[in-house]
Design a protein around this nucleic acid. Structure first.
Length: 224
DNA sequence: TCATTAAATTGTT
DNA sequence: AACAATTTAATGA
C-alpha cells in the first residue's frame, strides 16, 4: 500500500491530481521489474496497462523484414508510454525491450480510463505529452532532408533527453552506435564520425555502449 | 576472485 | 561491407 502511493507520488502526471484522483491512481497502479535484455512486450501482444519507467531504460523498436532492429525511441526514467494502444484497445505495434535492469510502474486500463474521464489534470498531462511527441515527429520529416548527417545524429540523440517526455533522464544513455544509426537513418560509420566530431566540440563523451551528454540544448538545436 | 574465452561494440579502410 | 582492435560479459576453476 505504501509502495503504490509512492509510485503515484513519483509520477509526474500525478502532481496536479486532487485527493480522490490520487486515491484511485494508487489503487490502480502496480510495479514490475524487468531484467536487462528482457522483453516487456512483444509486438502483437496485448498489454492493458499504461506504463511508466521508474528506473532503467526501455527501447521501443520493431524488426524490419531483413531482421534488423529498428529503434524508434528510448524511454527513460519518468517517461510514460502506451496510451495509444490502451486508448484504442489495440495490440502493441512495437517490441518493448528493457535495455537495462528496469522498474516499471503500470497503471491498469480501468484506472487509466477513469482518470481520462474524470481528471482535468490527467488530460492536461496527456495532451502535453502527445503534443510533445507530435512535435518531435514533425521535426523528423522537416529536417530529414535539410540537415547534414552530423546534425541528424545530434538531434536524434537529444530526443532521448527530452525533458517533457522523460523528466528524470540523467546525462547519459546506454545505446550502441549501431542502434543510433538505425534511429537517425544514417550508416554506422557516419554515426561514429559524427559522435567523435561532437565529442571534439565538447558536447558529449563517447564510451562503449554508452554516450554521456553535456549539452542537451546544443544538441537539440544543432545545425540550426 | 581471477584467468580464460566468447560475444558485442567500436574504429578504420 | 569487411576487417581488426577493443571492451564487456560469461564461464569455470
Amino acid at each position: 500500500m505504501n509502495t503504490r502511493s509512492d509510485l503515484v507520488r513519483a509520477a509526474i502526471w500525478a502532481a496536479e491530481l486532487v485527493g480522490d484522483e490520487i486515491e484511485r491512481a494508487s489503487r490502480g497502479i502496480s510495479e514490475k521489474t524487468f531484467a536487462k535484455g528482457s522483453y516487456v512486450c512483444h509486438r502483437g501482444d496485448r498489454l492493458d496497462y499504461w506504463t511508466g519507467v521508474v528506473t532503467g531504460l526501455v527501447k521501443i523498436s520493431a524488426i524490419s523484414r531483413d531482421g534488423k532492429a529498428m529503434t524508434f525511441a528510448g524511454v527513460g526514467p519518468g517517461g510514460w508510454f502506451g496510451e495509444g494502444s490502451v486508448l484504442k484497445d489495440e495490440p502493441r505495434k512495437y517490441d518493448l525491450v528493457a535495455i537495462r535492469d528496469t522498474r516499471l510502474a503500470m497503471l491498469n486500463k480501468a484506472t487509466f480510463f477513469w482518470l481520462y474521464e474524470n481528471s482535468a489534470a490527467f488530460n492536461r498531462f496527456l495532451v502535453r505529452q502527445l503534443n510533445e511527441r507530435l512535435g518531435q515527429f514533425i521535426a523528423t520529416t522537416e529536417y530529414d532532408r535539410i540537415l547534414d548527417p552530423k546534425a541528424r545524429v545530434a538531434r536524434n540523440l537529444s530526443w532521448f533527453f527530452n525533458p517533457v517526455l522523460y523528466p528524470d533522464m540523467r546525462d547519459h544513455i546506454e545505446i550502441t552506435q549501431d542502434e543510433l544509426a538505425l534511429l537517425a537513418g544514417v550508416s554506422r560509420q557516419v554515426v561514429n564520425r559524427s559522435l567523435r566530431a561532437l565529442e571534439e566540440e565538447g558536447l558529449l563523451r563517447v564510451e562503449h555502449g554508452r554516450i554521456n551528454v553535456f549539452g542537451v540544448e546544443r544538441l537539440a538545436n544543432y545545425g540550426a
